Simulated scan of single mutants.
Amino acid sequence: MQAWVWSTAITTLIAAAMLYPGWNLRRALKRPMPLEFRAILRRNIPIYSRMAPPLQQQLHKLVQQFLHQKKFVGCEGQHVDDEVRVTIAGLACLLLLNRPSKVYPGLHAVLVYPTAFLVPRKHVDEAGVVTETRQDLLGESWGDGRVVLSWDHVRRGAQDWTDGQNVVLHEFAHQLDSESGSNNGAPYLGSQESYRSWSQVLSRHFEDLRADAMFHHQSVLDHYGASSPAEFFAVATETFFEKPWQLSERHPALFDEFAKYYRVDPREWQDAPAPEPYVEPGYGQWR
């Protein structure tokens, strides 16, 4: 009789988990984040220890939801352990702090390679000739619910938090961009006025970056952002989180738009850099 009761209870729990995935998620989020996961965040995300405790707690819950909902797949021999999963989830969820957003609802899986990976590319020229090539990539956000990352470059980007290069922030910015329905550099902003301001500011700075790239002028933003509005948004996201003081000084209007969107001020997590010596424009320095 007792065995039958236990069997019925277990069956009921399994059925509830299958029918009500939100119930299963709520149970997972009620558990505190394991201490070893917090140690990984401290070790691999330098700004984590400088964040206010309420933000750390937010990040814990977001990471737990990410780990509960998303599948990690190791490719070409990459072993996926807690170090890999928590580091990637922690970096990705920095973009969601203070925002009433679901945790990347369109994302299903994260594919992790040991290092840069090759992907096939097709190029069609003006004459209609198709050329097939293979391109080395550090990361890519796919429209079918997958993000692909090089673990080697995930670690490099996380360890140096001042170079403006972070493959996880970049690719997950693309995921946010796609939530508006297309990858065009304008994520879901919520109001017509927000879109108007966003379009005016980002269009102007995008054209400035294109000019910087064309004339080989140095910029706080990586020139790769000049390739398209979608890449500009992703590059500017990396810069906002990793070089916030420089971005706010050189491009205050752009910084303000990203601060309104991401609802955090990463300057609070970093010391202000020493001022750079002034150099006359025209020598490949700041304009």
Rank of each mutant, 00 (worst) to 15 (best):
L149S: 03
T239V: 11
R155V: 10
S227P: 12
P273K: 10
V220W: 02
E193C: 00
L247W: 12
E231H: 15
H170F: 08
Q192R: 04
R267W: 11
P266R: 04
M214F: 15
R267L: 10
L221M: 11
V264C: 08
Q165G: 01
G157K: 03
H223K: 13
D152H: 15
K243S: 09
H205K: 10
L189Y: 09
L209M: 06
S194T: 04
V264D: 05
H217E: 11
S141L: 06
S228K: 10
G225S: 07
Q165H: 11
E249P: 07
S199V: 11
A259I: 04
W142S: 14
D212K: 05
S219I: 05
A226H: 00
S191L: 00
Q246L: 09
R146T: 12
H153A: 08
G139P: 01
D144R: 13
T239L: 11
D208G: 09
W245F: 15
Q175F: 08
S219W: 08
H216S: 03
Q200F: 04
V154G: 03
V167N: 06
D163V: 13
S141E: 05
E238I: 02
D271A: 14
L247A: 03
P187Y: 01
D222F: 04
S197W: 02
D152L: 08
A226C: 09
K243P: 08
